[in-house]
Design a protein around this nucleic acid. Sequence first.
RNA 1: GGGGUCGUAGUUCAGUUGGUUAGAACGCUGGCCUGUCACGCCAGAGGUCGCGAGUUCGAGUCUCGUCGGCCCCGCCA
Length: 591
Amino acid sequence: MNKQHARTHYCGELTETHIGDTVTLCGWTHNRRDHGGLIFVDLWDKKGIVQVVLNPQIDQLAHQHAQSVRGNFVLRVTGKVRERPEGMINDKLSTGKVEVYIDDFEILNRSKTPPFSVWEDQEVSEAIRLKHRFLDLRGEMLQRNLNIRYQITRKVRETLDKQGFIEVETPMLTKSTPEGARDYLVPSRLNAKKFYALPQSPQLFKQLLMVSGMDRYFQIVKCFRDEDLRNDRQPEFTQIDMEMSFVTEEELFGLVEEMVCGLYKDILNIEVPKPFQILPYKDAIRKYGTDKPDLRFGLELIDLGDVVAGTSFKVFADVLKSGGQVRAINAKNSTETLSRKVLDDLTEVAKTYGAKGMAWIKINADGLQSPITKFFEQEMLDKLIAEVGGEAGDTIVFIADKPKVVADALAHLRLELGKILSLIDESKVCLAWVTEFPLVEYDEEDNRYVALHHPFTSPLQEDEDKFESAPGDIRARAYDLVLNGNEIGGGSIRIHTKEIQDKMFQLLGIDEEEARIKFGFLLDALQYGAPPHGGIAFGLDRITMLFTGADSIRDVIAFPKTQKATCLMTEAPSEVDLHQLKELKLKYDLS
RNA sequence: GGGGUCGUAGUUCAGUUGGUUAGAACGCUGGCCUGUCACGCCAGAGGUCGCGAGUUCGAGUCUCGUCGGCCCCGCCA
């Protein structure tokens, strides 16, 4: 008992090949079954579970000690691996053909009864699990997810290393950027009234590294954005961030495809075909209403503006008159599934995205069923149905509104219909590049153009003459990688000349002085031999979600935050001592 | 900022129209048990019904507020 044995094996690794060996195992008590004369303990570690047997005939003392063992106690045991007696094999365990007869038994630590059963299937409220995250992490799902997350970063590093990238760290305490998301601010003690910001991304630093001749940079790096959380959004998240000099879109796409296909092959053993589909932004919006379409199924959007032009149906006519659109989806073979109730629910979905309503026509075997057909002349109705390829069994759903509302509502209706009609093949992997995003977009509220991607994105060369005439029509050399309807990465070829960068700032309403204050260092750098360059950043958390099938980003992060951006375990954020504030020369505004 | 939903033993839940002492399962504690693996059997402990007001003779149940978890809109260059 006094002599400490070193661990020789992981619990989950023992197999028939170890029969006869004397082993020392360390782990947690997963379960115990005390038969009085004979005690079984299921010992757990990260590799799995093995049954250990305490028999007083083998070792009286060990058996006696084991009587006080409870769940989650930490044990070190030594004993001989034996084949299980006939009929005693447990098929549910990978170690189920063997068991370990213990002759040396030590309780390394006791455990309070945990607030929930770590290894049991029972669903426990997330709040309790988050408060005791260290216990939840002992569970199978999180062990697996974090393992896959690590496999992804390992493979990314391996691939990029082979391609000549080096990983460079960039500052966490940096400068606040005016555009984009809200910054997390850090007060500077040595510089009163001044603040650092935590990076929203290492964007500018990686561009500067290109000016420095690093040629190929990457970093797996935390980024911070002080915005509201979602299912797939945390205030701190991790990007796989890359930048390359003298690169073209084609070259970058090829490299990324290599990496992504490698991940699928290595981790999920799935062969994903290359190259990925390229889908210009304009086409994506036209066909799917979104820049991140789920391409695993059809249900494309159809524009009916021309067909219904001149209709007396006031809803459509008014929308068209004010520059809006009438678009539709033909849900094939859906009249049975899309009951009145389901259509009402879909209407609510449409309303969430700003639509005032959703019109529909069911093509039943015995004729049309619809609240709106009575407003149409037969001839227009025939044309309409022909246009959408309507046949018996189909349901046509319409949204009429401003183009943005129509696209938004129909994009989400399309996804809902895909789910309801079971059109989504979960085994499919559809990856596509969405390209040619608009460079800027007009912000009605602020009365100015804002960058769609970010202000350092290069315009398409052939559109450069539109800076004055039609800024909204300038296409960007920007691209997103979309996986089954999820944006998993995005990037661009950057502006590398001061002239174009100045034009861009001008377009965004950032005057010379402001540009100098905010981005002076970048503008300087661009004048000292900045190479053409471009890059991309991937959301590691989202990729891991998709690879693990996790329902929430919290399930792929070791210590995540709640929807109110708090940590239930550490109780961050918290109040601080007054003297800390004094040192920082900060005080509360109590108003 | 807004909408929705949930909150009752340690955990997951039930709790009728507002009515006696708030129940079950698992877990936990003690006892018995040499082949179990969701061991079994016997006994037991365990409750600020999230919190605060209000209505009522009486509130887990109704009303209002508030706190917290989750989902969504806005937001996320």
